[in-house]
Simulated scan of single mutants.
Amino acid sequence: FFFPLEDMLAVIKPDTQHKGIISEIRGRGFTISRLKDTVLSREMAEEFYREHRDKPFFSQLINHGLFLRSGPCTMMVLTKDNMLEEWRASMGPTDPSEARQAAPGSLRACFAKEILETAVHGSSNTQHTHQKIQFLFRDISTESATSPAYLYI
């Protein structure tokens, strides 16, 4: 049988300098197929969050303590079956205080500081995933970034 694996762009934000988070991600069954540390310029941060440009919190995403640009972000392409649902569940609610109540074992419950310093990021849908992977890992062709991987069992 062939089961399609899905890719997801995941980001460990600079406000999370705890190295154990990568072990935690792997321990939850995610495969890290690509990984790089990068410091985002303002222009890169604006492009990264472009789908939120018209929302009232956009300037906070870009400007709040410059956290996204304050140090290296660890950019990862994660692979797993049922990726979007699994990663969203692993991250937990966006608000860390809510995460501590509703999903105490989630990454945000364990590593996030506050609502704008959520420790990790994941794309909200497959389209955003592929756009962000292409944007951040330009050396991955569009075809390889969007074609599924398969696991033979």
Rank of each mutant, 00 (worst) to 15 (best):
I21P: 00
I133H: 12
S90M: 13
L116M: 15
K19C: 08
I62T: 11
T126C: 07
E47H: 12
N125A: 02
T16F: 06
R42I: 07
P72G: 10
A89K: 15
L136D: 01
S33H: 06
K13A: 02
R34D: 09
K80V: 08
R69S: 15
L9I: 15
L107E: 00
Q60K: 15
S23L: 03
F135Y: 12
N82D: 14
R88I: 10
S23D: 14
V77N: 01
H121Q: 10
Y150I: 15
E43R: 07
I115D: 00
P104A: 03
L9G: 05
R26S: 12
Y152L: 14
I25N: 03
R34F: 10
H18M: 04
S33T: 15
G105I: 01
D81V: 04
P148S: 14
L9A: 10
Q127G: 07
C73R: 02
I153L: 10
R108W: 07
K55W: 05
K13N: 03
S141E: 03
H52P: 01
W87V: 02
T16G: 04
A10E: 02
S33A: 11
F58T: 09
L136H: 09
T129P: 01
L68N: 10
L84N: 10
S90H: 02
M76E: 06
L116S: 05
F30A: 09
E46C: 09
A149C: 07
C73T: 08
S106R: 07
E85A: 12
D54E: 14
E85D: 11
S59C: 03
S41W: 08
E47S: 11
L84K: 13
H130A: 11
L68T: 11
L107Q: 04
L9P: 03
Q131L: 11
A45M: 05
E114C: 08
E114D: 14
F111E: 02
I153H: 06
I21K: 01
R108K: 06
R28D: 06
M83C: 15
K19G: 11
T16I: 02
E143P: 00
F57K: 07
Y49L: 00
V77E: 02
L61A: 03
D81H: 13
P148K: 13
M44Y: 05
E143Y: 09
D95C: 09
S141W: 09
T118F: 00
P56A: 08
R69D: 06
Q134D: 08
K13S: 01
G92I: 02
L40V: 02
A102V: 13
K113V: 06
A109W: 05
H130F: 15
H130S: 09
F137C: 04
A149G: 06
D37N: 13
P93Y: 12
K36V: 06
Q60P: 00
F1T: 10
S144M: 13
M44F: 07
E98K: 14
T38K: 14
N63P: 05
S70K: 14
R34K: 15
E51M: 04
R26Y: 08
A102Q: 14
S23A: 13
A102N: 13
H52Y: 08
R108D: 01
Q17P: 04
M76K: 04
E51Q: 09
M75I: 10
E47L: 11
R88L: 12
F57A: 08
E86Y: 07
R42W: 02
G29L: 04
E47A: 12
Q131K: 15
K55I: 04
R26Q: 14
E24G: 00
G20K: 10
S90I: 00
S97M: 12
M83W: 05
